[in-house]
Design a protein around this nucleic acid. Structure first.
Lengths: 351, 351
DNA sequence: TTGTAGGCGTTATCAC
DNA sequence: GTGATAACGCCTACAA
């Protein structure tokens, strides 16, 4: 019967394997877990039988014993709406997923849509169903990471955790990256520099703004609040911010934008106003996403090493799972300024 | 001891709950599973004890018995690279996730990076660890859905499955949506219509191209292959395609683009060439993503109901889990043309 | 190095 | 309606 396919001859279990291999369950289990204390003959027999039968360990049974789920959750906290739309997250998921797959961990995507859901989630996470958590797109006042950590589940925040939070995080050195981008604009002789920032309740947004100010201060240029606008990481927000800036300071000659997605939109607005990039206004973005290479002109941007950072997050998490010590760790990766044409920093000699 | 926090007084189990409630394990289980055959006194007692203890059912143990994981997997097959970057997927994940949460299912994100991984995956999926699968971004020759379905795991493809494939899918009526968009351009008096399509090995891309051709044919306009270019759903591909089209037919006066992400880029290229939108060239996109509202001018686009479609996918999946019958089902949702300024179809009277 | 036996937390099958 | 009790598939002392 067709509808019996699934259970037909039911799923093959370790018992089936060891029976075929002629060893005991214990030995079979040892082989599956790469225990060193097993005769190579036995090992081969088990492996052969396993392959022959197409055995796949039952995760539920294993979890029940080991109290591990071999799954880690990636959480985007509730007030997520607009920022979620940044394709940056896709790269991030992909990088984390690849890294996890290497360790045969699963990636659980969790996107609570309300605070109620998030509350429920918290209990759920704490009950041993997920071995570790990556929290991303965290807003400043959210104590979710600490609450989870307090329940003994390893957590790592992607991006700097809020000041004073006792949580592990992995981040790029956004502040100095932003400062480098701004310094680069200054080096091109630009003096009327504006910035479009992300939502300022997000540390990553704040860091980029602070870096911008740092560079101005270093150069001895007084900060002008009218040259700072918030774009909240959305394209729409960026368009509004750029228009606002142009209205307030029509003579601005450079813009540092806190994400490439926003920068692309800002460029669009600038060009729509008849301004040339980089001749009239130089632009630098942040993230060095693929879009930076396809804007016209190509967008200078601050690159952060997503793969390396993802790798580190997973490493921290797995470490926290293997050897829990509740010590928050912070790892900061350096950024790199990638200069393209939008900032006028390239020799114009390109054919 | 700090490192003992997690197991301190270990996780509360159903046994703890029933002991406190003064009932048997069986009754406790019945309450948890909303069995009708339980006295309301007993029910209340269990619920109270459960709340008091903060009980959370152990999924592993439950799975072991029920042979259900209460998880569904969302798969983006291997050759994923560029298209993955479309923010459309984020909306999609979010919609699916919300829908799943309603049924207390988990969302497993699976992004195999190679065919080897994908192969391994197949066995894994088949071994009862995931109750159902959503396959998305499927390329034409990929038989993954059928292979999974053949192993008895419910599968639904997001977007039309390849012709001849025996798989359930949920899709928008892309073909007629594309035709409507094209007809709209024709209605504006445009006669030299071009299109930028997605990767033609993806049914959704092909459907949009076919719809474009349908409308031309209906209008009695001969198809001109030089007015069709492939943009593969990436921004870079779109830019290249638009440039190619302009080179081949500098006098084109309308473009139908298979995704908003690509359309935004195409507009950019057009404007970079000094062409006005919609005066010189009218543009219509597809997806009606947020970006459509923030381009300059706002982008006309074909909307498909992501939420409703996600809802339906989950419904199909859960149905397939509850009552397996291996009957592939197809559900097609109508699309809706949203007219904004980019197509010149709005009265220009707007203030 | 290997095997035996007990248990992980639930649900399902029975009697009662 | 309710309560024992036997699975579910695997891991892991412990003994051999």
């Amino acid at each position: 019967m067709a509808q019996d396919d699934k259970t037909n001859g039911r799923n093959v279990t370790l018992e089936d394997v060891v029976r075929l291999a002629g060893v005991s369950l214990a030995t079979g289990s040892r082989v599956m877990n790469a225990s060193p204390t097993v005769n190579s003959d036995a090992r081969r027999a088990v492996e052969k039988a396993s392959a022959q039968l197409g055995y796949v360990p039952n995760r539920a049974a294993r979890s029940l014993m080991t109290r591990r789920s071999n799954a880690i959750g990636v959480i985007i906290p509730a007030p997520t709406s607009r920022i979620l739309m940044d394709p940056f997250f896709l790269m991030f998921f992909s990088a984390i997923g690849t890294e996890l797959a290497l360790h045969s961990y699963q990636l659980l995507l969790v996107m609570p849509q309300s605070f109620d859901e998030e509350k429920h989630l918290e209990r759920y996470l704490a009950s041993g169903h997920i071995d570790g958590i990556v929290v991303t797109a965290l807003h400043g006042d959210d104590t979710l990471p600490e609450r989870i950590a307090a329940r003994g589940v390893p957590v790592v925040v992607s991006g700097r955790a809020p000041l004073g939070a006792r949580a592990s995080y992995v981040d790029a050195d956004c502040r100095s990256g932003a400062a480098a981008a701004t310094a680069h604009l200054l080096a091109q002789g630009r003096r009327k520099l504006a910035t479009i920032s992300g939502s300022l309740d997000m540390p990553s947004a704040m860091d980029r703004l602070l870096g911008f100010r740092d560079a101005l201060e270093t150069a001895g240029i007084a900060a002008d609040p009218a040259l700072e606008a918030v774009g909240d990481f959305s394209q729409q927000g960026a368009a509004e911010a750029m228009n606002l800036l142009l209205e307030r300071r029509p003579d601005l000659d450079g813009v540092f934008v806190a994400s490439d997605t926003m920068a692309a939109m800002a460029m669009h607005v600038l060009q729509g106003s008849g301004l040339r990039i980089p001749e009239d206004v130089a632009v630098v973005g942040f993230d060095d996403q693929p879009i930076a290479q396809t804007t016209e002109p190509p967008l200078s941007s601050v690159r952060h090493p997503i793969e390396a950072m993802s790798h580190e997050m997973v490493r921290l998490l797995l470490h926290g799972i293997e050897a829990p010590d509740n010590q928050p760790r912070q790892v900061i990766f350096p950024t790199e300024l990638v200069i393209r044409e939008s900032s006028g920093g390239l020799s114009m000699a390109r054919s």
